[in-house]
Amino acid sequence: MTTDVSFEAGARDERALSVWAATLRFLLRNRSVQIGGGLLVLMIAIALLAPLLWTVSPTRLDTAMRLRPPGPDAWMGTDPFGRDVYSRVIYGSRISLLVGLTVAMTAALVGTVLGILAGYIRWLDGILMRVMDGLMAIPAILLAIAMIAVLGAGIGSVIIAITVPEVPRVVRLVRSIVLSVREEPYVEAAVALGTPGHLVMVRHILPNTIAPLLVQGTYICAFAILIESILSFLGAGVPPTIPTWGNIMAEGRIYFQISPWNIFFPATFLALTILSVNVLGDGLRDTLDPRLQRSV
């Protein structure tokens, strides 16, 4: 791995910066990273520019205009309340990406902290890992549904409910890296030389987790977007006052036969977004760490 070598060399000045730039250039040569990343950037742009892109307010009702097919007035048709599906789908990209990115970052952050603690503090390891085993034993969707039932429906609670089941996976990953890195001669040497624990962690252990975390994080992001849509679809997610792709589909599902656009357009956006994140993840994995190929 390029990154830990450079850190091991202790180069934390402009050389480190150029290493990052080189890594990025290296990454961008990968076809999957190009396609997935490009698509994702497009989605993010749509989400950011959403208020400029939508034609009417995504929550504006017009009951006399319900279930219209796509046309010049409503590019993707209207839903059972006469709301504009195009504007809603555009708005929905904000929620999906917000949930996906927040979950990935929170899970990675919390998981890294807990993973390092578990890998470093022996007495904590046992307890923490038993709790993580317990959490992992509960199917993610069930856990999320139950948590939302308790926390109440809302974007915040959906994010928490999707994050919690993901944390144990990150903890396990980070902990295993910590355990293996700790045995490396250069780390043992640093410890023997009296380097304080937190410095060892920052200098030697954290850098080793970045690549696998990045890869794992993209997969968590894709998974979170998918779960969010499933939760909304089942009526157990973000409240339907907020247009998310899952909610648009949930409200349109019974009219599938007469107005398939209520399902078709959000589904396409959803699939494309998940696809782009997955492809990006594959690309990152292939370039950053070929060894990771075996672990899903």
Binding site: I230, F233, L270, A271, L275
Partner: peptide
């Protein structure tokens, strides 16, 4: 692709 299509769709 199969990975990215939600099961309900």
């Amino acid at each position: 692709l199969g990975f990215s299509i939600p099961v309900f769709v």
